[in-house]
């Protein structure tokens, strides 16, 4: 059997100061810190894993039920339940490092000050991580979250403050909810972000027609899965056309074909999220599929694929 994982030629991705050995990343909130999934496969084959978002203090999360199936998708209203950044740094990071995969801690603050405080804590472990993700787009929290993305100025301020503290790569996780993704991405780039992760889950809800009550304890949640792929793809495509900042394409990627679609639409790398719940080994399988596709198409470097659809449209 061909070992598709021994050869990383042509897969390296450079996004600003962030260099990944390949373009497949797992999305925050779907992969914990990788330990659970390492029981299914060697997660060190991945380009990186993005951890669950960590806040300054422990967060309890939202009222259950937190999960609801929808047509070709799901809603979640977890509400960033986590044990706090100190727990990640002191308890989880070393365990995750043993997996041999590059780690991107995702962080969440309710305001600028909290982001700064978390960044100072991250500073102590900068050598052990490849980048940090600023979660500026969670739809399930009362303070901060998706609201940050309503204002390019706020996004810029948080990136600038983080950049002053950290030297590691900075990824901003943006929402497709507002019609200003170019502005927020531009602000992020201007103040030093290396890449934008696009998009987060889409605010949504569902009701039970028997009880006539919301299906989620939090009433609203975030929609993810195949249902959002075309929406996410459009956001990536539109942002990539403007060539503002390298993009990690996220939204309903279930297969390697989906991943390729995001890359030809302009994404430098791809984030795999909800698919992990259904196919625990999907990160590995998507990477393998990308490699096989490149061989079949005789593409020596993944960079040659990036944005081909945009070039083709321009060429006519």
């Amino acid at each position: 059997m061909t070992d598709y994982f021994s050869d990383e030629t042509g897969l390296e991705v450079r996004m600003g100061n962030i260099v990944l050995k390949n373009p497949v990343i797992t999305c925050s909130g779907t992969f914990a810190s990788g330990i659970e999934y390492s029981k299914f496969y060697d997660v060190s084959v991945l380009g990186a894993i993005t951890t669950k978002s960590f806040s300054l203090e422990r967060m309890a999360g939202n009222l259950p039920p937190r999960i609801c199936e929808t047509s070709s998708g799901m809603l979640n209203s977890i509400g960033l339940q986590n044990e706090g950044i100190d727990y990640f740094i002191n308890e989880q990071l070393q365990e995750a490092k043993k997996l041999g995969v590059e780690i991107i801690p995702s962080i969440f603050g309710r305001d600028l000050d909290e982001f700064k405080k978390i960044a100072y804590k991250i500073k102590n472990i900068e050598e052990e991580i490849i980048a940090v993700e600023l979660n500026l787009s969670c739809p399930n929290v009362a303070e901060g979250g998706i609201a940050f993305c309503a204002s390019a100025e706020q996004v810029g301020n948080i990136v600038a403050a983080t950049k002053e503290i950290l030297h590691t790569g900075i990824i901003v996780k943006l929402s497709g909810h507002y019609n200003n993704i170019s502005e927020t991405a531009s602000a992020a780039k201007k103040y030093g972000a290396d890449a934008a992760a696009v998009i987060n889950t889409i605010p949504a809800t569902a009701f039970d027609i028997e009880t006539c009550k919301p299906k989620l304890g939090n009433i609203t949640g975030g929609l993810s899965g195949p249902a959002i792929k075309p929406v996410a793809l459009l956001k990536v495509f539109e942002l990539a056309k403007e060539n503002i900042i390298p993009i990690i394409g996220i939204g309903g990627i279930m297969t390697w074909q989906d991943a390729i679609e995001f890359i030809i639409a302009g994404a430098s790398a791809v984030g795999v999220g909800t698919a992990n719940f259904i196919y625990p080994e999907c990160g590995r399988d998507i990477l393998q599929g990308i490699k096989q596709y490149m061989r079949r198409k005789n593409i020596g470097d993944i960079k040659m694929l990036k944005g081909i659809a945009i070039s083709n449209i321009i060429k006519g």
């Binding site: 999360g61 999960i67 979640n76 977890i78 992990n276 625990p280």
Partner: peptide
């Protein structure tokens, strides 16, 4: 039982309230 997404402890989707020592609860 509760609605689940990952089933393996990664997503925090299937939590229930369990009493803790401080007369409060944890998920």
């Amino acid at each position: 039982e509760e609605k689940m997404a990952c089933g393996i402890g990664a997503c925090m989707g299937c939590v229930i309230k369990i009493k803790n020592k401080n007369n409060g609860y944890s998920y």
